[in-house]
Amino acid sequence: MDVMKDQCSSFSSLGAYGRAVRDIPQRLQTRMWAVWTPNEELDRIKERSGGEMQRKLGWCDVMALGVGGMVGAGILVTTGSAARLYAGPSVIVAYVVAGFSALLSAFCYTEFAVDMPIAGGAFSYLQITFGEFAAFLTGANLMMEYVISNAAVARSFTCYLAAAFGVVSADEWRFKANGVSEGSSVQLDFLALAILIILTIFLCYSTKDSSIFNMVVTLVHLAFIVFIIIAGFAKGNISNLSQPGLPADPGGFFPYGAKGVFNGAAIVYFSYIGYDAVTTLAEEVKDPERNLPVGVLGSVIIVTILYCLMAAAICMLVPYDMVRALSLSVSLCLSLARARERTHMPLLWV
């Protein structure tokens, strides 16, 4: 069966689409385990996609996009819970373990991306290894992952912007949805929607220009992280890396042992999500055999170093068992203000 012909004809008309829906059981039976060859994925998908993509991205662009994709809300929401509940000060080692795991996964992604420099990403890689059905499930999961994660980040932007303008609750900038059940908390966030639309239009305009924008925003974000690192090493107390705030809690750098380190690594691995998306730029990268591995692997290494330093700074600012947080903005300001006095003030996470 000519898969490409079937896919094109299914959407040629309303009647053809109806026949395709009717033939789903038969197609599922014959194509569930159908595996594409690398040549089909490289040539026929490009032929169907239309015009050739322009290769304008270098290794520095790939690295900046990788760092920008990983450095985000993850570091701000996982460090506190991982340190307080699982690893203690050894959350620093947990970031190393998670970073090493991400690096191994990045090796796999770059290997596929170099052999097949196309924009399909994990969908294409699975289509030539496990077949169409596995690729379909993975593609659907990736779509859901990006939709949900991007919606959550966009919604949090409303909270940060509202706080910047002195608004007590970001709900004041949202609208309650009509027609939902009584007592439901469903709200419409038009500011988050506007941010997504603007960024989508900017991304569709030019990948090269959007990579420059991403680089600028990433540098600002890195400046914030560097500030936390400097403040933590300058104002923090190194004894907090071994002494808990409450005598009843276990002490030492590994208060929960090796199990705590690996449990913490499982939590903080969320902070590394994003490096895999960079491989979908393979068709837009100059000399992908060189620039893709350097960009992807370099970004994972840079982010791992930054995360470890930031985790060390946070653990020196306050004892691990006094952390009550899942975010950093207000708590870091409070802990910095008290650092000179060396008081064990709990972090108030927002």
Rank of each mutant, 00 (worst) to 15 (best):
S81K: 07
G99M: 03
A94W: 00
I75S: 05
M116G: 03
T129F: 14
V93K: 00
V77Q: 11
P117M: 05
I92T: 08
P89H: 00
F130K: 10
Y86K: 12
F100Q: 10
A94K: 04
A83S: 11
F100N: 10
Y109C: 10
Y95F: 15
F123S: 02
S101R: 05
G88D: 02
S90I: 09
G120L: 10
Y95P: 02
G80A: 03
S101W: 08
V77A: 13
A119F: 11
V77M: 15
T129Q: 08
A106W: 10
F112L: 13
A134K: 04
I75M: 12
Y125R: 02
G72W: 04
F100T: 13
V77C: 11
V114L: 09
G80N: 02
V77G: 07
V97C: 03
S101P: 07
A73V: 12
A94V: 09
A82I: 00
A134S: 13
A122K: 04
L126E: 09
D115F: 13
G74V: 04
G72V: 11
A102Y: 07
L85A: 09
P117R: 02
A106K: 09
F123H: 08
A135F: 04
S105K: 12
V93S: 12
S124P: 01
A73P: 06
S124H: 14
G88L: 07
L85S: 13
A82K: 00
F123M: 05
T129H: 09
G120K: 09
A102F: 15
L137F: 06
I118T: 15
P89Q: 01
F112K: 02
A98C: 05
A98D: 04
S124N: 09
A135H: 04
V114K: 12
T78P: 00
G80S: 04
A82L: 00
A119N: 11
V114T: 08
P117K: 05
R84S: 15
F107I: 09
F123Q: 05
S81A: 14
V91N: 07
L137A: 13
C108T: 11
G72A: 02
M116N: 08
A83K: 00
G74F: 01
P89I: 01
A135I: 07
Y86A: 14
V96F: 13
T78E: 10
F133A: 14
V93H: 01
M116A: 12
D115S: 09
M116P: 01
V71I: 15
A98F: 02
I75N: 02
I128Y: 06
A98Y: 05
E132A: 05
R84L: 11
A122R: 01
I75A: 11
E111L: 06
P89W: 00
C108R: 09
F130Y: 14
L85R: 07
S105M: 03
D115N: 13
E111T: 07
V114R: 07
R84Q: 13
V97F: 01
C108Y: 06
V97N: 05
G120S: 12
T110A: 05
G131V: 06
